[in-house]
């Protein structure tokens, strides 16, 4: 379980309004209180337009809140320009489809872009590039290749390594598996889990694949219409599966099975979201009936 220390990153009353004062005015997120504690693995889910992407861009200071504050280690990230720039390196953000941001001649140079901007020594940069590449399974001989000659999944992993190489205190990934085949997805998720194990970094992952996120994260935030609709451990959140479907999110297949069983008059526990849970619940139900 997570030991409640001071949050590493938190927001208070965070609100962002796009195009304020024009006919296109749009409230993207409203009054969001959020806290992540050191070492936690958090998941953010919500469908398109729920404000999750806007929200995470506040966490590293790319977007300035219309009102409210974002704090890193208790300090307002917009307190000074210099600090805001520091925050970029301490809160690593991997955008959606990060492979579209690759631009260097070689994989090595592209991964080194972040560390170079941090003005690190060449030896340190080299060390970080190689560590990050290894974490995402990019082999030594690939480092000298052009990033544009790699496969989609490899490009994605190079781009993620580019952020990991900055060794941020908090790593945020926006739909890191979007558009990949199942094998590619698994690889990326494994890379992230691996990275977490090795570095102990706080990781925040945005996704709309419930199955993927439910298995790994400690806590889950459900975004809906610019607000946090639900928050809690995966089992707390998935015990409200009806509400999840109501706001247009697809719940894991196994949760659906449990919901149907409930409709049929059985009483499986409400927090089923992995195959193991369902299996245990079914065996228990069967045992119960056999007893009767």
């Amino acid at each position: 379980m997570v030991i409640k220390l001071n949050p590493i990153i938190s927001t208070e009353g965070l609100t962002h309004v796009y195009s304020e004062g024009t006919p296109f005015e749009h409230v993207a997120i409203e009054n969001i209180d959020f806290a992540a504690y050191p070492g936690e693995y958090l998941g953010i889910i919500g469908h398109t337009g729920s404000g999750k992407s806007t929200f995470i861009q506040h966490l590293n200071g790319l977007l300035k809140p219309t009102s409210g504050v974002v704090k890193l280690d208790g300090e307002d990230i917009h307190s000074s320009k210099k600090f805001t720039r520091q925050v970029r390196f301490q809160v690593g953000l991997v955008f959606q489809y990060p492979e579209y941001q690759l631009f260097e001649e070689t994989v090595y140079k592209d991964i080194a872009f972040g560390p170079k901007n941090m003005k690190l020594s060449d030896a340190e940069i080299d060390k970080r590039v190689r560590t990050a590449a290894e974490l995402v399974g990019i082999s030594e001989d690939m480092l000298e290749k052009s990033p544009f000659n790699l496969s989609g999944g490899q490009k994605r992993r190079v781009a993620i390594a580019g952020v990991m190489a900055m060794q941020p205190k908090v790593l945020i990934l926006d739909e890191p598996t979007a558009g990949l085949d199942p094998e590619g997805r698994e690889e990326i998720i494994e890379n992230i889990n691996n990275y977490r194990k090795v570095t102990g970094t706080t990781v925040i992952m945005v996704s709309h694949s419930m199955e993927e996120i439910a298995k790994s994260v400690d806590r889950l935030f459900v975004f809906h219409d610019g607000n946090i609709d639900m928050r809690g451990t995966p089992s707390e959140v998935f015990s409200h599966s009806e509400r999840l479907e109501e706001i247009g999110l697809t719940v894991p297949q196994v949760t659906k099975v449990a919901m149907r069983l409930r409709q049929m008059g059985l009483e499986p526990p409400r927090d089923i979201y992995t195959t193991e849970h369902l299996k245990a619940a079914l065996l228990k139900l069967k045992g119960g009936e056999a007893d009767a």
Binding site: R88, F89, P98, Q101, F113, G162, M166
Partner: peptide
């Protein structure tokens, strides 16, 4: 631009030449 800024790219400071060079990571993609 946001993605490169997240990797510490700096588009706002420096001389005109430095700024033009800083745009390379945006122009190529």
């Amino acid at each position: 631009m946001s993605a490169q800024k997240a990797r510490g790219a700096d588009f706002e400071t420096g001389s005109i030449f430095q700024r033009a060079k800083a745009l390379l990571p945006v122009m190529v993609p």
